[in-house]
Amino acid sequence: MIRYILLGILFIIGMYALIFHRSVIKKVIALGIVNTSVVLLFIISGSSIGDAPAFTGEQGARMVDPMVQALMLTAIVIGVCITSFSLALIVHLWGRFETFDIDTIEKRGDDES
């Protein structure tokens, strides 16, 4: 139970930072934290039915759920792709405004057009 509560706290911290933090870089990091909390949630829940690795063999009945691990493999790669593209966009914004502050970017972006 305590593991799930800790994951919930991790989720709240990540979401809070994603919403209220002013630096865009830290927003992307926060997105990573939230993503990790969900991935861990899947993996930990999947391991509640067993403790052996997902290989065929004699320990078959004690195996963790292999399904969630395969799903999370996909989810992690997608998360990495999203992060890389958002960082590229931030590099673009930095090249123009030389700031990571979201309010400044917002204001100056409006002025520019």
């Binding site: 139970m1 799930y4 509560i5 994951l7 919930g8 706290i9 989720f11 709240i12 979401m15 809070y16 949630l41 829940s45 999947g46 509640s48 039915i49 067993g50 065929t56 078959g60 009945a61 195996m63 759920d65 292999p66 399904m67």
Partner: peptide
């Protein structure tokens, strides 16, 4: 809202984790 969501989404109720997929795959 976040605490509420984390409570509803993260804390499991007493239904056990499904094992059908594992059984089939093994």
């Amino acid at each position: 809202a976040l605490v509420l969501l984390a409570g509803c989404l993260f804390i499991p109720d007493d239904t056990p984790w499904p094992t059908d997929v594992r059984t089939r795959l093994v």
